[in-house]
Design a protein around this nucleic acid. Structure first.
Lengths: 172, 172
DNA sequence: AGTAAACCTGACTTTTATGTCAAGTATTAA
DNA sequence: TTAATACTTGACATAAAAGTCAGGTTTACT
């Protein structure tokens, strides 16, 4: 249960775009150099994000990549979901249960075991979605300390919201 | 960012042992049949758990596998960590940062980007550890509904604890 | 038009995770 | 002691993820 390479590097790439938003498009080469990964890999990752309509690209000389929307309106949750190959067991919506993914050779998780595990991931996934969907790319453009404060705030708001079982307007 | 097959199936195997704890050791064959996976795979998974000293094995004709400790004293966190191949970026302690794992071809995460992401996983990992370390195998031997209640309770206690920055005795 | 910069794309290679196989060792019971 | 059961182990085969390559298309500038 860990963050995949695609998620990590893809997130870094789109963060570069967020950083230089409202200027000229950023070239793949620039991103590759500042992140220390190959241009080809950057292309692949940004293609995934482009198909998810989070990034737009401009071809030709003077071209490059840019965010499709404002950094404030793109959430970390959206980005992570776009970069996750399949519907993850943890990352996605609480409706997607792991029983759908890992059923062994049996028909379904009829035995109690699998169903005992399910609620654990249900709660964890709900928390994760709650947190990641309330952190925008803009939030991540600050110092490490400031980001930490935002995330902790969001984390607590998320828990409070879920404890009450309702939808609360998160203010910060 | 999802639960791996090894984590999922390994957890199921050890849960079978928890279910039949204080009886005769459970054979690999029994587990394989009830979980719908091959005996060889069960052997491999239980070997991992045995080396982590969570499971003990008895060889010979009346042999099988059993928990090394009481179901109450083995936490989900321990099990997941044992089944995670490496030190995961999310699952492990908050000290392990993803910068150690994904640094591209650069020396370290000198650029602001990576360090902007770090606190997100720090908070998530802290939450996850808090939750998983307070759920025992015994907790998972109940009905789905009961497990859900336990997990939600633990989740909220964990958040409260972390919001206060201290260590609270979790009571239930 | 020509050229250079830059994105596009699918196929390919490499690495890692998954799962299987086979040969072995230990234990019990007849 | 022999046979049957069951765990042990490392090597192997397969599948998925990660990352690279090569050839293509688009655009701006001269």
């Amino acid at each position: 249960m860990k963050v995949t390479a695609q998620e990590e590097y893809g997130l870094r790439c789109i963060l570069q775009l967020a950083r230089y938003h409202s200027r000229d498009p950023v070239t793949g080469r620039q991103i590759a150099e500042s992140e220390g990964i190959s241009l080809d890999y950057v292309s692949k990752l940004l293609m995934i994000l482009r198909r998810a309509e989070l990034v737009r690209s401009v071809r030709g000389i003077r071209g490059g990549y840019a965010l499709a929307r404002e950094p404030r309106s793109i959430t970390l949750g959206e980005v992570m979901r776009a970069l996750s190959s399949e519907d993850g067991v943890v990352l996605t919506s609480p409706d997607a249960h792991m029983c759908d993914h890992f059923s062994g050779h049996l028909e379904a998780c009829m035995h109690l075991n699998a169903c005992a595990i399910r609620p654990v991931w249900t709660v964890v996934a709900r928390y994760l979605s709650g947190v990641l969907d309330h952190i925008s790319l803009m939030d991540l453009l600050q110092t490490e300390h400031q980001v930490l404060e935002v995330v902790e705030q969001v984390s607590q708001d998320t828990m409070r919201e879920q404890a009450m079982g309702g939808t609360i307007q998160i203010g910060r």
